[in-house]
Amino acid sequence: MPSPRFLHHATAQVSDDVDVILLRLSCSDFPDWSDLTDEDVEDFPLDWDPGTMYFVSNTEAITSRGHTYIPWMFELTPPSQGSGPSGSTLRFENIDRRIGDAIKLLPSSAEIFVAAEMVLAETPDIIEQNFTRFKLTVIQLQQLTIEASLAPPNDALEPFCSFIYEPAFTPGVFPQ
């Protein structure tokens, strides 16, 4: 549940607080960052978990729950606000082509998952809004941007409801 401070920020006409989106890209084919040295990756922090990249929609890095989120220009369109089948898209700026080149190195069978959270920049350890974990499905590499469609999680293997309702025992469920 959002904090009172976030609710005030979200409903106020003017606010000093800044909300930012923390984005985690996870893929088993991403490198184990602890094996790298400062010379291997000059702009990427080494406190990342293996197979995970951390980005923030901000102009400066943010540390949240022990991980450094690097500033990157991206646009996340949540479900029901987009025009695609899932309604969700993720667009990254690819001006220096680092992310685009990294995606090209991944095998075609690689599965990239996206988790996003909204926080206030002043209190980055308090998650104000959590988004569903998505899977990148269609990735379009363009000269200056990377655009990807996001698919919701596959819940086909989840168990169905195990309740059985009978009119004799639950008359409230079956109005007459």
Rank of each mutant, 00 (worst) to 15 (best):
I139C: 12
V20R: 13
D16F: 13
P31F: 02
P85E: 15
S64V: 00
F160V: 10
P152K: 02
G66D: 08
P159M: 04
S149N: 12
L106S: 03
D32M: 02
D101P: 04
G82D: 04
D96A: 01
E75W: 08
T37P: 01
P159Q: 04
A121F: 06
D38H: 10
S26A: 15
V18D: 07
I103R: 08
Q143Y: 09
N58W: 14
E42I: 15
M118L: 09
L46T: 13
P171A: 03
I146F: 10
C161K: 10
V41E: 12
M1Q: 05
E42Q: 15
D35K: 13
L141T: 11
R97C: 14
E117Y: 10
E42P: 04
D49C: 05
Q140M: 07
E166D: 12
W33K: 01
P159N: 07
P50E: 05
S80L: 11
S162I: 09
I112W: 09
S88F: 00
T137G: 07
T132E: 15
V41F: 03
G82Q: 03
N130W: 08
L25N: 06
L76V: 04
H9R: 03
V56I: 12
T145K: 04
V56P: 08
L150K: 00
N154E: 06
D49Y: 09
G172I: 03
T145H: 11
F92W: 11
A168Y: 01
L120A: 08
D19W: 06
P79L: 07
G66R: 05
L120M: 15
D32T: 04
L76R: 06
E147N: 12
D40V: 01
I95L: 15
D125P: 08
G100P: 08
N94M: 04
N130K: 12
M118W: 00
V18I: 12
A168Q: 08
I95T: 14
T123L: 11
S26C: 12
S80C: 07
T132P: 01
P31T: 02
S86C: 13
E93N: 05
P175M: 05
T89S: 12
A121V: 06
Q129F: 14
A121L: 14
